[in-house]
């Protein structure tokens, strides 16, 4: 009985191994016959690409027919303006649309209207920085009202998203990543939350005498 089982196992192992061996042989044959490395890479597993965690978008700002959400079979798709054409001369950034929109507006490269019809109407810009101390060891957050009031009206954020009162808004990164608080816009339309954009908000170094706060966890309430 044991022998039968073993032979069964062996045959199974052989069955599994044969295709693997075949692909290996083929890959080596390909490299011998001078096929480009790209072709070989695609025939091997794509899971083990070099430096996969540093993978970058090959195509930035694709034109509508090639972007994957516009239908190329639709005639008007080819009439739509390609983003790169519009972004010519805009200050670049490393994330989102790869355009630094605030700088674009500051430099006067674009003049978006503040009123639907009247191109002369100007926004009421409030220059007030709010510093938010952060419990963790990352730099504290500085919220600049200036950049926000250049684009938005007060009523867009207050009081529905942020209560205009000190200590009244509990904000954490998980809530933002899930689309609440700052995440209502950041991560959807305004600059996204990536490892490259942390410093845009977390911009004020901790005071010299700063020490990490002691944990408030107790035996009775360990989930603090």
């Amino acid at each position: 009985m044991i022998i039968i089982k073993q032979t069964r196992f062996l045959s199974l192992a052989l069955l599994l191994a044969v295709p693997f061996m075949a692909t290996q042989v083929q890959a080596s044959a390909d490299s011998l016959s001078g096929v480009t490395a790209v072709n070989v890479a695609s025939s091997v597993s794509a899971a083990n690409t070099f430096n996969r965690n540093l993978k970058k978008d090959k195509v930035r700002n694709a034109a509508p027919p090639e972007d994957g959400i516009h239908d190329p079979a639709n005639d008007s798709t080819h009439v739509l303006q390609p983003p790169l054409e519009a972004f010519e001369g805009f200050p670049p950034s490393d994330f989102g649309n790869y355009v630094d929109w605030v700088k674009t507006l500051d430099d006067g490269i674009i003049q978006p209207r503040w009123d639907r019809k009247d191109p002369t109407e100007e926004p009421f810009v409030m220059d007030l920085d709010i510093v938010r101390p952060v419990k963790a060891s990352v730099p504290d957050v500085v919220f600049p009202h200036r950049q926000h009031t250049m684009w938005l009206a007060c009523s867009n954020c207050h009081p529905a998203i942020f209560i205009p009162q000190q200590q009244a808004n509990q904000i954490n990164m998980s809530a933002i990543l899930l689309g609440q608080k700052c995440g209502v816009c950041h991560g959807k339309v305004s600059f996204p939350i990536t490892t490259k954009s942390c410093k845009k908000c977390h911009s004020k170094p901790k005071p010299a005498d700063w020490e990490p706060p002691l944990s408030e966890a107790t035996l009775k309430n360990p989930w603090r």
């Binding site: 239908d71 209207r113 250049m150 009206a153 867009n156």
Partner: peptide, 27 residues
């Protein structure tokens, strides 16, 4: 076909406030 709204195109011409405060588009 579903409608596609490009934020980037409209942002060059209007500030967020025009649609999201005046016209009542929710976020």
């Amino acid at each position: 076909r579903p409608a596609v709204f490009p934020h980037w195109f409209h942002r060059i011409r209007f500030r967020c406030k025009v649609c999201h405060a005046d016209l009542g588009f929710k976020f």
